[in-house]
Design a protein around this nucleic acid. Structure first.
Length: 860
RNA sequence: GCCCGAAUGGCGGAACUGGUAGACGCUGGGGACUUAAAAUCCCCUGGCCACAGGCCGUGCAGGUUCGAUUCCUGCUUCGGGCACCA
């Protein structure tokens, strides 16, 4: 064993050892309990960033731990390789997205390998490979057959100058990012996946995912958004025909307080009325301005226009004015809402603005109603109906029931369950994605590409120029023969949302290399994923789409699981300081590595010119803020183990991590110290066997610490997934070994056990150094094949326990009592303590609380 | 605007089921070793006071409890998501 710790040598040797043995290649084995550990695969953006390193280190720690627990572990890796950044890079550099992407994958694969992750690289995949995306297309065709995929119009951001569809990300403050033109909404035909067919199950099964964080389940439940209410109709006559305008409401009890009905600008009735009303047309056109995100729609000023048209109240037949409102969403419910200003905050503001009547129809006891000032209790469901004729005095539930029943007898309404979840639009007017396997034939119409013509291959040599999809201009791709009639036809040039690619990659890892089927029986061995790890930013979309996709494949009989991910760990973001300076009109950002911070931490200057820079606080590491830390540089400076150790130590997986160059030193020191201790120990020769019965008090104490550490670390990795305290507990044990000066034979035996424990427990986090130290400690087999060190219960018990004594809840002293002391013995020991006596003397004891093993509280 | 989180010393964080607030580490200060430096090792490091001890202290304001960082109510600030970034 070398005297000095040299990370490059240690890491090279350990990685070569694992590679030669294919140590992490996973084989299906029904006789063994499996553990499928998966990290969200990266987008190949160029280089790994710290968020990746954190994510994959967490996964690696869990994988290596489960392997030591005897599980058959699968940990695969791949690349989510389609997407917008490749097209942007292509435009900037004139390189086709395919080349850029594959170069990035090659570089990032090397980076991942240098970090020593226990990955089965034989299963690697990239979603831009035809062997992969062929199955996107194949399953899409199955969805078409089943009516799960269908075509309808959808709204997109449109750049009127570039004549192109923009992603939400490409809309900056309402303008196209390249042209600066004001963005408009535009309706185009798109393919949709009927995820709403699974609303009920997607919601219900959340309760059967105890291994998911509560907040993620809550977010998904709210996203799916089940609400019970009443669908009801306001009748009207137009063009001599009697029609019904349907609305959905959760507050049917307020129906008698309706003072207007508002419909979305895209509502068919709005478009019909606008035909002969130019001012309505003008308002509808105004509503076209701006982007399509919900955040933008929800924060814009609420505006409306009176159509002059009236509909009739479903119960009273009274005329109700019809408005068009920019805040009414066509995509939710019926695209129309009833306006009850008395009991809905938005309607109240709208009514004040446009001087519409505000009528109180619910009385919440003891609260006078003020028509000039909204109060949130007006919207409570706790009152009873007033000013509502026959419904007066009914509470929420009774009123809804009575009104729904009356509506039903008139054929103007019924109770209904409404969902917030919308179908998933997957068409993208972009090049670098999976082609949608459809052909448009002038004779046969829309024709699906037959299975035997899959995959529809994406040409890999095009370079986009920002004006629309280059596929549409590429005649070799567009021109094709109709699969039905053989005549000339046009290929669909829209590609699929990249969320499609990531909705089933976990199944493909488990059926790696099968060219004849999307998945096979191996998937049923590995699924579900036992531990899924990824950023909290994916809490809704990716996870919901993957759940839906898995359920559809289950319904086709392709897999036998209902849910893809049994346990979910959502890791926090990695943040770093942001430094900037105004140079002329623009703000320039500086990398923290180029900035020197004053000792007091209050000011900073640029190293190159010594001039001050502004400290902009913490932000996620990003290119635009230039605050990324390159993991590669850290690995070269300290070694992979130190980077991994620091990442795990500095905050718990679910919390945000604030990067600090200085703190990395602490982890480096710790590993150096560990190396030194082991070297000192083994250089004195093999330690004798441990004879537990012969240990003295001091030796027993270290042994107790060793086994307490085993218990804590096993629990922290196996149950709590708190990896920061694993490192802290290891540091404590190493400190205890350092403080233990006993060269006797049993002293050395106790130290051997402590060091064995340390090296084995740390091996999931810092696998390279532990690989070498384990062999140096005299073990014939590598630590990856070692059994996880379980605590010896008998080593944990001690004869005396220390208790805290409180008086009136305040700490006043400590006592030592025998472990088996009775309640009375404990209380008299507590009362005997000098400082305690000061506080209880001369006062009557009202209450004596003894918490076993913890404390005594005396109330006087 | 809506949904979901978070807030603890100079700093990152710990305290798991309501029971000793500040484990572990960083920074800073003091010391040892050294010709010197680096490295290493030891000690101190939440605030205040009448300093063998006491009082205050976990974003803010209340509440429940023998006891609250932990539970409840109302705020503030920061972060994630909002369906075409991935």
């Amino acid at each position: 064993m070398r005297e000095q710790y040299s990370p490059p040598d240690v890491e090279r040797d350990a990685q070569a050892f694992w590679d030669e043995r294919h140590a992490f290649r996973a084989k299906e084995d029904p006789a063994r309990e499996k553990f499928y550990c998966l990290c969200m695969f990266p987008y190949p953006s160029g280089r790994l960033h710290m968020g990746h390193v954190r994510n994959y280190t967490i996964g690696d720690v869990i994988s290596r731990y489960q392997r030591m627990r005897g599980k058959n572990v699968l940990q695969p890796m791949g690349f989510d390789a389609f997407g917008l950044p490749a097209e942007n890079a292509a435009m900037a550099n004139g390189v086709p997205p395919a080349k850029w992407t594959y170069d990035n994958i090659a570089y990032m694969t090397r980076q991942l390998k240098s970090l020593g992750f226990a990955i089965d690289w034989s299963r690697e995949l990239a979603t831009c490979q035809p062997e992969y995306y062929k199955w996107n297309q194949w399953l899409f065709l199955r969805m078409l057959e089943q009516g799960i995929a269908y075509k309808k119009t959808g709204v997109v951001n449109w750049d009127p100058v570039d004549q192109t569809v923009l992603a939400n990300e490409q809309v900056i403050e309402g303008r196209g990012w390249r042209t600066g033109a004001l963005v408009e909404k535009r309706e185009i035909p798109m393919y949709y996946l009927r995820i709403t067919a699974y609303s009920e199950e997607l919601l219900r099964e959340l309760d059967r995912l105890p291994g998911w964080p509560e907040r993620v389940r809550l977010m998904q439940a709210n996203w799916i958004g089940r609400s019970e209410g009443v669908r009801l109709a306001f009748p009207y006559s137009l063009d001599g025909r009697d029609e019904k305008l349907w609305v959905f409401t959760t507050r049917a009890d307020t129906l008698m307080g309706v003072s207007f009905v508002a419909i979305a600008a895209e509502h068919p009735l709005a478009l019909r009325l606008a035909r002969d009303r130019p001012e309505l047309k003008k308002f509808i056109d105004e509503c076209r301005a701006g982007g399509v995100t919900e955040a933008e729609l929800a924060t814009q000023e609420k505006k409306g226009v009176d159509t002059g048209f009236v509909v009739r109240h479903p119960l009273t037949g009274a005329p109700v004015p019809l408005w068009i409102g920019n805040y009414v969403l066509m995509s939710y419910g019926e695209g129309a809402v009833m306006g009850v200003p008395g009991h809905d905050e938005r309607d109240f503001a709208f009514a004040l603005k446009y001087r519409l009547p505000i009528v109180q129809v619910i009385d919440v006891e003891g609260n006078p109603y003020d028509k000039t000032q909204w109060h949130e209790r007006y919207a409570e469901k706790t009152g009873v109906c007033v000013n509502s004729g026959k419904y007066d005095g009914l509470d929420y539930k009774r009123a809804v029931d009575a009104i729904a029943a009356d509506l039903a007898t008139k054929g103007l309404g019924e109770k209904q369950v409404q969902w917030r979840l919308r179908d998933w639009g997957i068409s993208r007017q972009r090049y670098w994605g999976c082609p949608i396997p459809i052909v448009h034939c002038p004779k046969c119409g829309t024709v699906p590409v037959p299975d035997d013509q899959l995959p529809v291959k994406l040409p890999e040599d095009l370079v986009p120029d920002g004006s629309g999809n280059p596929l549409a201009k590429h005649q070799d791709f567009v021109r094709c023969a109709c699969p039905k009639c053989g005549g000339g036809a046009r290929r669909e040039t829209d590609t699929m949302d990249t969320f499609v690619d990531s909705s089933w990659y976990f199944l493909r890892f488990a059926s790696s290399g099968n060219d004849d089927a999307m998945v096979d029986a191996r998937a049923n061995y590995w699924m579900p994923v036992d531990q899924y790890i990824g950023g909290i930013e994916h809490a809704i979309l990716h996870l919901l789409y993957s759940r839906f996709w898995t359920k559809f494949m289950r319904d086709l009989g392709m897999v036998n699981v209902d849910e893809p991910f049994a346990n979910l760990l959502t890791q926090g973001m990695v943040l770093n300081q942001i430094y900037s300076r105004k140079e002329g009109a623009r703000v320039v950002y500086f990398n923290p590595a180029d900035v020197e911070v004053a000792v007091d931490g209050a000011s900073a200057k640029l190293k190159s010119d010594g001039k001050p820079v502004d400290m902009g606080g913490l932000g996620t590491m990003s290119k635009s803020k230039n605050n990324g830390v390159d993991p590669q540089i850290m690995v070269e400076r300290y070694g992979a183990d130190t980077v991994r150790c620091y990442m795990m130590f500095t905050s718990s997986p679910e919390d945000t991590l604030e990067w600090s160059d200085a703190s990395v030193e602490g982890s480096a020191r710790f590993l150096k110290k560990l190396w030194k201790r082991v070297h000192e120990h083994v250089s004195q020769g093999a330690a004798p066997a441990l004879t537990v019965a012969s240990l003295d008090a001091n030796q027993k104490k270290l042994r107790q610490k060793t086994h307490a550490t085993r218990q804590k670390i096993g629990d922290d990795i196996g149950r709590r997934l708190k990896l920061n305290t694993v490192v802290a507990a290891s540091m404590e044990l190493l400190n205890a070994v350092s403080d233990f000066n006993d060269a006797s034979s049993q002293g050395r035996a106790v130290v051997q056990e402590a060091l064995d424990t340390l090296v084995a427990c740390l091996s999931p986090i810092t696998p390279h150094i532990c690989h070498e130290l384990w062999l140096a400690l005299g073990h014939p087999d590598p630590v990856i094949d070692a059994r996880w060190p379980e605590p010896d219960r008998s080593a944990l018990v001690s004869d005396m326990i220390s208790l805290v004594v409180q008086v009136n809840g305040k700490l006043r002293g400590n006592i030592e009592v025998p472990a088996q002391a009775s309640q009375d013995e404990i209380i008299s020991a507590a009362l005997a303590e000098a400082n305690v006596q000061k506080f209880v003397a001369g006062q009557a004891l009202k209450k004596k609380i003894v918490v076993p093993g913890k404390l005594v509280n005396l109330v006087v």
